[in-house]
Design a protein around this nucleic acid. Structure first.
Length: 463
RNA sequence: GGCGCGAUAGCAAAGCGGUUAUGCCGCGGCCUGCAAAGCCGUUUAGACCAGUUCGACUCUGGUUCGCGCCUCCA
């Protein structure tokens, strides 16, 4: 029985889908004005893992991850670059897909772009105005009136009073309440705009605010109520709080409450030197920067080796550690080919694996089981164990490659003809010319190539 | 200031009211021409102070320190 930590309830809860056997899941995706960094990688990997485990558990999953392709930063960046907005966003969408693919992320079932759902957003805003939850300000902006929504703050545990008392609330003369947030931004010079029926000095022309995008797109594909909503911890407030306010108010029928999401999931941050990795702190590493140095599977392994709700410190040392650990698993699998044999769920280790994954996706414990299996495999060389190890790891999107492909690296062996040197060395060894055989081994070692002798012959890998 | 999270061995990171987490590193042994890999064994824990309990790393309270949200952020 799957248990999920629900941010809304502040505890683990047994997962019960709205429709038996089906799961509807929405995750806040990227704003595409730059390359994805490791924080984005974590969201993608974590919810990829979640969807994989749900599918492995027999659920038919509909996974929606949106793309925000209109917002202040995009407009600014496009203007700076002298590009059109769609040129800019398409470039970074392609880059994102490339990065995600390398990290072994299965593409979500639906990846809606905000600009394709302006109509849905306008409809939702109109409904909110009609029901008294939103108002058109003098400047043409449309705001959500937070004190009309009784549940405001229930996800983030904040109260309107506390929020208003906060130091950083900016005063905006067009708002009725400083906590009101924008649903529709009136058009400004050099900004793209869409027609709307909201009126105001610009005849309603404008563009949507950020929060309404997700409310509209999730409702479009998953309906007024769905099972799981995910995202980074930083989206809890205000983004997800505002989504709830919008969706639950807009879908209220004659005062009947309509719960938007049953399970809210938030992944922890990636940190650098114990601080959150973020654009504003300028301490971020892009996925492609990291992939220049480390194998993508190592990065995926690194992310899944921490619990999804815990903070994850990034450093070269930690990536090196992850690389060595993953090397251990692949080393154990050497000689066992990749195959597609189904998992034996009766096996005690598979039972344990299911148990820990069902406990709020405890990939850390799941990994420990993989290492136990590797140990068993090293001792027994049992093909059954190898199949199980590959199968269980495969659910996490790991160990899908041939061992040598991982251990030797995908790139060409460089200038040295490793196989030929191994032959020469073995000849020297047979002649008991150990000085020569050690010279050859040293030669290769200096190039980062490690030789390993075994009864089956000599194999090599990269350090 | 308000709200919330965390503190585990050299590093990373989980579970658990009593029984080996796991990975990397270190040490000893086996194996090896020597290595590497692997196997066996092994040293390092639970910020601090109280309390509950037969028993606490695990529960409760306090202290200290760190982090996050309250502004765009995954």
């Amino acid at each position: 029985m799957l248990k999920i930590y629900n941010t809304l309830a502040r505890q683990k809860q047994t997962f019960t889908p709205i429709v038996a056997g089906k799961v509807s899941m929405y995750v806040c995706g990227m704003t595409v004005y730059d390359y994805c960094h490791l924080g984005h990688a974590r969201v993608m990997v974590v919810f990829d893992m979640v969807s994989r485990w749900l599918r492995a558990s027999g659920y038919a999953v509909t996974y929606v991850r949106n793309i925000t392709d209109i917002d202040d930063k995009i407009i600014k960046r496009a203007n700076e670059n002298g590009q059109s907005i769609s040129e800019l966003t398409q470039y970074f969408i392609d880059a994102m897909n490339e990065d995600a693919g390398k990290l072994g992320i299965i593409q979500p079932d639906i990846e809606p772009k905000a600009t394709a759902f302006i109509g849905d957003m306008i409809q939702m805003i109109a409904a909110l105005i009609e029901k008294g939850f939103a108002y058109v300000a003098k400047n043409g902006d449309v705001f959500y009136s937070v004190n009309h929504f009784a549940g405001y703050g229930k996800l983030s545990g904040k109260s309107l009073e506390d929020l208003r008392a906060g130091e950083r609330v900016e005063l905006d003369s067009f708002k009725k309440d400083p906590m009101d947030f924008v649903l529709w931004k009136a058009v400004k010079p050099n900004e793209p705009s869409w027609d709307s029926p909201f009126g105001g000095p610009n005849g309603g022309k404008g563009r949507p605010g950020w929060h309404i995008e997700c409310s509209a797109m999730s409702a479009h594909y998953l309906g007024a109520q769905f099972d799981i909503h995910g995202g980074g911890q930083d989206l809890q407030f205000p983004h997800h709080e505002n989504e709830i306010a919008q969706s639950e108010a807009a879908h209220n029928h004659s005062g009947q409450p309509c719960k938007m999401v049953n399970y809210w999931m938030h992944n922890g941050f990636v940190r650098v030197d114990n601080e959150k990795m973020s654009k504003s702190l300028a301490n971020f590493f892009t996925i492609r920067q990291v992939l220049e140095k480390y194998d993508a599977e190592v990065v995926r392994f690194f992310i899944l080796r921490a619990h999804y709700r815990s903070p994850l410190n990034y450093s070269d040392q930690h990536l090196e550690d992850a690389k060595l650990a993953l090397t251990r698993l692949y080393t154990a699998l050497r000689g066992h080919v990749v195959c597609d044999i189904p998992i034996n769920w009766q096996h005690p280790q598979a039972v344990k694996f299911k148990e820990v994954m069902d406990d709020d996706f405890n990939t850390v414990e799941a990994m420990a089981i993989l290492f136990d299996l590797a140990n068993e495999l090293n001792k027994t060389k049992s093909a059954e164990t190898a199949i199980l190890l590959r199968g269980l790891a495969g659910i996490l999107g790991l160990l899908g490659r041939d061992s040598d492909a991982f251990l030797q690296g995908a790139d060409a062996p460089g200038e040295l003809n490793v196989e030929a040197l191994i032959v020469l060395r073995n000849e020297a060894k047979r002649a008991k010319n150990f000085a020569e055989s050690d010279r050859i081994r040293k030669l290769l070692a200096d190039e980062g190539i490690i030789l390993e002798d075994s009864p089956q012959g000599t194999s090599w890998r990269r350090a």
